[in-house]
Simulated assay, not measured.
Amino acid sequence: MKPLLITDCDEVLLHMVRHFGVWLDEAHDIEFDLSNHDWSRAMRPRDERALTPEAMWGYLDGFFPAEMARQTLVPHAREALAALAEVADIVVLTNLQDHCQSHRVAQLAEHGIVHRVECNQGGKGRPVARLAQEHGASVVVFVDDLPQHHESVARAAPQVHRLHMVSEPAMAPHVPPAPHAHARIDDWRDARAWIEARFAAGQPATELETLGDS
């Protein structure tokens, strides 16, 4: 069986927060601080009104899918996936509502990325475990920008190699490495090499791997 790469989309394959911030400014007079990974603090209405969690999620629903065309490709992501697809199956696991699935497929295709897309809500551990079992892959690599998803995958599918990536340069320096990831790499050129090494080794992950392992 081929190895399997399961990758997130936003801030891994496509830039999102920088464009979300511009839209919030233009459409809602809200400043978005890219240096703050806590969105409850990053979103600051200029009239200083308080934002409820429901309101914050509502703005995301306003961005997806209506404003997805604003998003731009992360440098070297398309080339890395094209090379990895020669030896592995690839699934894009994106935390969007199900009605956005066809929009995400079309959006990625416009950027030259054509792979299976799965929408998910909540933790990614169970869907990663399901996909790993479905593909029967002996080696699986998971890439995501959010630490909570690495923890979820570590619990549900500990055999999966977990790579933490934050592709937004204005945000990455302010985001510490995910404790449950095996490595943190924010550039797809280096990430490709790390993933290829896992595929070539042909071994599942173990808890003996550390954040600095390369």
Rank of each mutant, 00 (worst) to 15 (best):
R70Q: 05
R70E: 09
R70A: 11
Q71S: 13
Q71T: 13
T72V: 04
P75Y: 03
P75N: 09
P75S: 01
P75Q: 06
H76R: 11
H76Y: 14
A77P: 01
A77C: 02
E79T: 04
E79P: 05
A80K: 04
A80L: 08
L81M: 12
L81V: 10
A82L: 12
A83V: 14
A83E: 14
L84P: 03
L84G: 05
L84H: 04
A85C: 03
E86I: 06
E86A: 09
V87C: 12
A88F: 01
A88L: 09
D89M: 10
I90H: 02
V91I: 03
V91Q: 08
V91G: 02
V92W: 00
V92R: 00
L93F: 01
L93Y: 03
T94C: 10
T94D: 00
T94Q: 08
T94F: 00
T94W: 08
Q97E: 14
D98E: 15
H99G: 07
C100E: 00
C100S: 12
C100Q: 08
C100G: 08
S102Y: 11
H103W: 11
H103C: 14
H103P: 02
H103S: 15
H103G: 13
V105C: 08
A106E: 15
A106Q: 04
A109F: 04
H111R: 08
I113C: 12
V114T: 15
V114Q: 07
V114M: 12
H115M: 01
R116A: 12
V117C: 05
E118I: 13
C119R: 01
C119V: 04
C119Q: 02
C119D: 09
Q121H: 14
G122P: 04
G123P: 06
G123M: 11
G125C: 01
R126L: 08
R126H: 14
V128K: 06
V128E: 10
V128F: 06
V128L: 07
A129P: 00
A129E: 04
R130M: 14
R130V: 14
L131C: 03
L131M: 05
Q133G: 11
E134I: 11
E134S: 11
E134H: 12
E134W: 09
H135V: 02
H135Q: 13
G136H: 06
G136W: 07
A137P: 09
S138R: 14
S138A: 15
S138T: 15
S138I: 07
V139T: 07
V139K: 02
V139G: 02
V140W: 02
F142K: 06
V143S: 04
V143W: 05
D144T: 09
D145C: 08
L146H: 14
L146A: 13
L146I: 11
L146S: 12
L146E: 13
P147A: 13
P147F: 03
P147E: 01
